[in-house]
Design a protein around this nucleic acid. Structure first.
Lengths: 110, 110
DNA sequence: GCATTGTGTGGCAATATAGCCAAATAGCCA
DNA sequence: TGGCTATTTGGCTATATTGCCACACAATGC
């Protein structure tokens, strides 16, 4: 693989990897609705505050979210909304896989 | 987080995690152009054949690719083309981050 | 000042991932 | 049959990720 192409894929993979965690997907989805502070997200997710903070820093580091300090809290918001469009495709993968599994079942029952 | 929502995010994360690797992104991109057998991909990537085979099995397990045996080779193809549309969004993240970094530089130089 | 609240950081243990080698399996061709 | 190629699997080590705890640190309110 050519080195330039490889670098490009590494950069992309870093972003996608930042999304590749249930809690972080949840955060992305929530931030797509409205901005949230760490505290709110921590309550919703039900994990340790430090854990959520680290998830947010991973998302921020990947360039997916921005933070803004207001008073005592830090509000995070989604920087690139097009990410949410991708979820539809992910759902397609899931449903198409489920459909295929059903077909296999049908086939074997005959 | 409600359990059903959590399960949904876990399912999605599994698919996204399967994409979150440079070599696997490369494979996805190649398979979007045309089907390929393990051997061809191994040559292109330049890793051990067993490594590439494992990457393919991860992609297959996530429902992203299908395989079809023909003769001595196994040909893989992309199952859900909409994945490629997402790459545009990932590039947006990258360029928007780069742009922001430039702004910061400009700002500090003044 | 002091207690409280909201966030981030360092450290740690458990777990997951990556990639190589060696070996097994399957199909092809003499 | 035997040798060859293509692919997968198991085993191993190195590395990365996750999530908790304890602590640090800033802003707020009293």
């Amino acid at each position: 693989m050519k080195s330039m192409v490889k670098t490009q894929h590494e950069a992309r993979a870093k972003i996608i990897k930042a999304m590749a965690h249930p809690s972080r997907l949840f955060i992305i989805e929530e931030l797509n609705k409205k901005e949230r502070c760490v505290n709110e997200l921590t309550d919703m997710i039900g994990a340790d505050a430090s854990t959520v903070s680290k998830h947010l820093s991973i998302l921020k580091n990947a360039g997916l979210v921005t933070d803004e300090k207001r008073g005592n809290s830090i509000f995070y918001s989604l920087r690139v909304p097009c990410i949410m469009e991708f979820m539809g495709c992910v759902e397609d993968v899931l449903s198409s896989t489920a459909k295929q599994h059903l077909e296999v079942l049908k086939c074997c029952r005959k």
